[in-house]
Write a protein that binds this DNA or RNA. Sequence first.
DNA 1: ATGTTGATGTATGCTGAACG
DNA 2: CGTTCAGCATACATCAACAT
Length: 417
Amino acid sequence: MSLTSDLKSVTKSVTKNWTAQRKREERDSRARYSRAQYMQSDRVYQKDVAWSVIPKAYAKASSNGKYPAHARQIFYAARPEIQKRTGRPLQSVYFTQHLLPMYINEHPEAAAWWIVYDARGRLIEPHTDEQIPLGTLEVNNYLLSIGKHEVVGFDFHEAFDTDYPTKGPANRMSAVLFIEKEGFNELFKAVKLAERYDLSIMSSKGQSVVAARRLVDWLCDVGGGVPLLVLHDFDKAGLEIAQNLTTVSEAARESDRVRYEFRNEINVIDLGIRLTDVEQWHLEAESVRFKGDFGPDSIVTSDEQAFLRSNRRVELNAFASEDFIKWIEAKLKEHGIKKVIPDADTLADAYRRAYLIASINRHVDDFLDEARDEADEVQIPKRLAARIKKALREDPARPWDAVLADIAKEDLDEKAC
DNA sequence: ATGTTGATGTATGCTGAACG
DNA sequence: CGTTCAGCATACATCAACAT
């Protein structure tokens, strides 16, 4: 009696961990893979080590969150300890593209970390000379400036500037035109494509970066944004680049490698190249070895899959420049992309503003002679350099000429009173 | 000698696929 | 599963080969 119960309890205690593990496996099929650890494996995973090292590494790279930390800087901060504890070399690509994103996905507090990635590609606004590199910081600043933007009352410093002030899509762009490579920017510029259709042109270098997706998410949402027009090569990668710009792939979801979660549904129009374009425009295919497969969520039709599987692809570069522009313009027409004209309230405001500027500009010549004489005769203030020095001590980030301009204005104001 | 071209190797970010 | 690789795109540095 007591023997059996003893045996039973001993057996039970010995197999406890095993049983617990088996039960975990029933609950969670993932646990099955860690079964080996309970049996014989003594492998030290880079991932496990990374999980304990990453917070320290981030703190080090960012000075405890005070400054932005490059993903690569975090890698350098983390690498020595990870290599030491695993006894194996750690590749930067594995850390920055896999381990770090996975860590952030699994640790909610890390979402607030200030991690930055280099810019890839850019957004170019029509008419405003604004160029926004698609990097974490740059896109952040751009979105902030859109949020803060308001058209303030007329200011003398803009006297000669007849542009109506805008930031972002409102009253400025009809759509965002995305293209998977940068090489066509010069052509677009030459034919004034952006200006003639009020398009912002957004380009990447291969796969879109997180910053690009975030920007698309804010500029092109279905409820109130402008359309996103996508240009891509007709090959497996190009179609995936187009798809990944606006949606999270099943594969990324399953392997916990989601880089960006979209907040909005994106108003996206695929301009091509698709198979119909290849046929219509008689584009020449080049041969390339097809690899891989199309996911169940793929946008590629079965005809297209057959084409691509026959080891052919068509790049955007297969278009002659002129045809390329013709092709794009036909697509713009097809989708009703037209120049921007703001609503009546904005137009009224802009009209008053333009009228005011025109009126001031009319009198500027008169002012100019008078002001020039006054400036020629004015006494240069004593101790000017000392005043500038003092002001620079208070705000060392300013240049001398900005300070001097303030001083001149103060002196003039005083005299006028 | 000087200038241009092309190959090679480094770097960046991102993905799907494959390896063990 | 954890890990690595190959591929999309591109910039930049370096060096050899070639033309002027």
